[in-house]
């Protein structure tokens, strides 16, 4: 019996199991809860992915040169470093960050009235590369040779930990989804067993008239799977409605949890996957339980 056979249904098999009983309702409730949690896990995973992608995009293809000398030497070193950068193939832009901009960068930590003159701050040059094959290491060595007070930072030491953190968070989201699927499988397996136990007389009658186990299982599997699908639809829609009420833009440098545009489509498979998990576990449990009966 494939999932398509199950969905097509068998009017005979569907009727033989009494429609009363709390088990199918509990399946719907359990599946709705799991789908609700799954939607938030997916939204969180998408947000983390977006955050990581943004961070990587911002750091990739850029570098910073710090001029650590002071006084008159600073201007000369800055000019020398700019000379090196402008004559290096593969560099798209190189610009000295003005003091006002530098002040704005430090404002979140030191406040508005920061006297930059009184602090031993380095001068910063922002560099962008053309393409990904640029040899940042060679540029670093050249700068160190020609301008000893220049410190070249290609952001590599930031990119690595960020990529690792993002990978860990992605695995965490996958693990959360796996746990949700496992819980759903356990709920539906228990529901199948409960439904079969509560209908032992029905099973006896069906066997008496020559029903095969696959046919008997189909009656229970279809009912539980359809309830699981219904519950998952409700849970998904409820979670989507809550997400839709979230702000469309993020705060404190984080992207929004609310999906945007095509990202909403990521939620569409949740009810189908929940129904698939319910179908597979219910069918397996039902057939195993029927096999154990004389």
């Amino acid at each position: 019996m494939s999932v398509f056979d199950m969905l097509r249904g068998d009017p005979g098999a569907s009727r033989v199991v009494p429609s009363s009983g709390t088990t199918p309702r509990l399946v719907a409730l359990g599946t709705a809860s799991m789908a609700f949690l799954a939607v938030f896990a997916i939204a969180l995973a998408a947000m983390l992915f977006h955050l990581g992608a943004t961070w990587r995009a911002e750091l990739a293809g850029t570098a910073t040169v710090r001029i650590t000398s002071s006084g008159e030497a600073r201007d000369a070193d800055t000019e020398a470093a700019m000379q090196v950068l402008q004559t290096t193939p593969g560099i798209a832009t190189a610009r000295v960050i003005p003091e006002l901009e530098q002040q704005a960068l430090l404002e979140p930590w030191f406040g508005k009235d920061l006297p930059l003159d009184s602090l031993p701050l380095p001068r910063l040059i922002e560099v962008t590369f053309e393409g990904e094959s640029f040899d940042a290491k060679a540029l670093g060595l050249r700068l160190a040779g020609e301008v000893p007070s220049a410190r070249f930072d290609d952001h590599d030491r930031w990119r690595g930990p960020l990529a690792r953190a993002q990978a860990r968070m992605s695995w965490l989201a996958v693990a959360a989804l796996g746990l949700i699927a496992a819980t759903l499988a356990a709920v539906t397996a228990l529901a199948a067993r409960a439904a079969l136990s509560a209908n032992s007389q029905v099973i006896d009658v069906l066997r008496l008239v020559g029903a095969r186990d696959t046919w008997i299982a189909r009656a229970f599997v279809r009912r539980i799977t359809l309830r699981a699908f219904l519950g998952a639809c409700i849970g998904t829609l409820a979670a989507a409605a809550i997400l839709a009420a979230f702000p469309a833009t993020g705060a404190a440098g984080l992207p929004a949890l609310r999906p945007s545009g095509a990202s909403w489509a990521l939620l569409a498979p949740v009810p189908l996957l929940a129904a698939l998990v319910a179908w597979a576990t219910t069918r397996r449990s039902a057939l195993r339980m029927l096999k154990g009966r004389p």
Binding site: R15, V16, P18, S19, S20, Q201, V202, D204, V205, R207, L208, V209, G210, A211, R212, D213, T214, L290, K291
Partner: peptide
């Protein structure tokens, strides 16, 4: 197997003492 037993039962007419029915049908 359970399927073969089911096939065998289809060839039999069986009446048990406790007449068994699906009460909701």
């Amino acid at each position: 197997s359970s399927d073969t037993r089911a096939s065998a039962r289809r060839r039999m007419g069986i009446v048990y003492q406790d007449t068994q029915f699906l009460d909701h049908l």
